[in-house]
């Protein structure tokens, strides 16, 4: 689904210089996803050492981090489809 949408939006923009822009914005996705999980685990670990409850909060916040990573993809898909609509209505 994600691949399809990316592919469609890229295919439509080949005649445009927008292809560079969309490629660059997709390329930023990987680092941000990885960092989200890392930050989640970091916050969980810090809270665990604060409350002395290792490892429960670390695990919980790891899942929050993973959810945040997937939310990044969701936000990007929303942005892409909105731009597609704007291109269609032109």
């Amino acid at each position: 689904m994600l691949g399809y949408k990316m592919h469609m939006s890229l295919a439509k923009k080949t005649d445009d210089k927008g292809i560079v822009k969309s490629l660059l914005s997709y390329s930023t996705l990987g680092l941000e996803m990885g960092l989200s999980v890392a930050i989640g685990i970091g916050i969980g670990y810090f809270l665990d050492s604060f409350f002395k409850s290792y490892p429960y909060l670390t695990i919980i916040f790891m899942f929050f981090g993973i959810a945040a990573a997937f939310k990044t993809i969701y936000v990007l898909i929303r942005k892409v489809s909105k731009e597609d609509e704007r291109d269609h209505s032109k």
């Binding site: 680092l31 960092l35 989200s36 930050i39 916040f61 929050f64 981090g65 945040a68 939310k71």
Partner: peptide
């Protein structure tokens, strides 16, 4: 709230690190 917070913290970190 934790999800949004993590997402917002990840932004400047990824920006600077990249």
């Amino acid at each position: 709230i934790p999800i949004e917070l993590i997402g917002h913290i990840a932004r400047p970190l990824s920006l600077g690190l990249r």
